[in-house]
Simulated scan of single mutants.
Amino acid sequence: MIRLITGFILDLLFGDPYWMPHPIRGIGWVIQQLEQRLLREEDPPGVQLWKGAALAVLVCLVSVLIPAGLLLLSYRIHRYLGMAVEAFMCYQLLATKCLKVESMKVYQALKDGDVEGARTAVSMIVGRDTSVLDETGITKAAVETVAENASDGSIAPLLYMALGGPLLGFFYKAVNTMDSMIGYKNEKYLYFGRTAARVDDILNYLPSRISGLLMTAVSFLLGMDGKNAWRILRRDGRKHDSPNSAQTEAACAGALKIQLAGDAWYFGHKKEKPVIGDPVRPVDAEDIRLANRLLYGSAVLALLAVCAVRGGMYCIMRIKI
């Protein structure tokens, strides 16, 4: 648990320096290389399905076995070296500060009146087409990304590392990265990316709901509209193609009293999507900053909850002994 707490603190302090090699970029490279070798759009759906499943298995094996080997070697050299490497791995699997830094670039550009710069900044953190977005659309895209990734980038990996250390965290991030790269329901990836998308749905089912509840609780603590966050979470928490993505978006929209989601453009095609939340007030650039407060608050609360559960289990075991 000490290694996880250390990794959490390191993430909040340093984020992801661009000069530092990052394992998630490495996982992305492996996915890209395997996709180039396996994906043939002329293949029948059944062949694309098994090829996509083979990619998923290979990526997960590589993503777990390499860090497992590094951990084993480090602990064999010295216990403290192993602990340091494990803490560093936990740090690299969390993306709380990185998400804040990238979204605040959008915020700053909007505040400076640089809509084109904001559009460029938001294109770095969303998968949709950003060329058609106006100032409101840019702001909504940034807020939605912060809200959704509060689970994917922070709380979910934290929960999995609490259960199984960084190796389970790497397994989760491998699946999550595959979903973000090939999990689209379009003509190219509908069958090839289906395994990755389905496994990602399974792995995120509980963490996304826990994240929605944590964000709702934090909205009370931060003086936001906690009652509305709870109401919108219950009402709109399933308004998404994914069974998980709308959970934190709904809690965030309710806490900020704004409306998120709605139609968006992907790969040149308009995708009709339901709205989340009520337009009690217009979306404003300040909502990006407020969404980041919810992100940080939810992440800290998740860590405290994990520590409390682990501490309680330890006490119970001691009493039984």
Rank of each mutant, 00 (worst) to 15 (best):
Q33Y: 09
L213Q: 02
L256H: 06
A217T: 12
V143M: 09
E249F: 07
R289N: 05
D236H: 14
D225E: 12
C90M: 03
I319A: 13
Y18D: 09
Q33H: 14
L65M: 15
L190P: 09
H22Y: 04
I182T: 04
I77S: 08
K105E: 08
G183Y: 08
V85T: 13
W19H: 13
T145N: 14
G193W: 15
I232G: 07
G127A: 11
L4Q: 07
I155M: 03
C315F: 14
K188I: 07
S151L: 06
S219K: 11
A150L: 10
Q108R: 11
P67Q: 07
M20D: 01
G311A: 01
C252H: 09
D225M: 04
L190I: 14
S242Y: 13
S180K: 06
P45V: 00
C315I: 15
G127L: 06
L70C: 04
Q36S: 06
T136I: 02
A229N: 01
V218G: 01
D129P: 09
D201K: 01
K270T: 02
G113C: 07
N228I: 04
G52E: 04
A229L: 01
L81F: 05
P21W: 08
A118H: 03
F171D: 05
R209S: 13
R310L: 15
G82C: 08
A261F: 13
A121M: 04
V300R: 07
P23H: 14
E41W: 11
A253F: 04
V218W: 04
V175W: 06
T195A: 03
R194D: 01
S63R: 02
F171L: 14
F170I: 00
V122W: 04
G254P: 05
L133W: 00
Y205Q: 02
L214K: 03
A253I: 03
I232L: 07
V59D: 00
P207A: 02
R310Y: 14
P45Y: 13
I9W: 08
A147M: 08
S208D: 05
R37N: 10
G28H: 11
T6W: 01
R3P: 00
E148F: 03
N244W: 00
P44S: 07
L38P: 15
R235D: 08
A95Y: 12
A229K: 02
K105I: 02
A68C: 09
E144T: 05
H240P: 12
L58V: 14
L12Q: 13
L167K: 07
E272M: 12
M317Q: 14
A261M: 10
D201E: 10
S151E: 05
N204R: 08
D236M: 10
I31V: 15
I2F: 10
I9L: 14
E286D: 13
A285S: 12
V146L: 11
R25D: 09
D179T: 01
H240N: 12
I319N: 06
H78M: 08
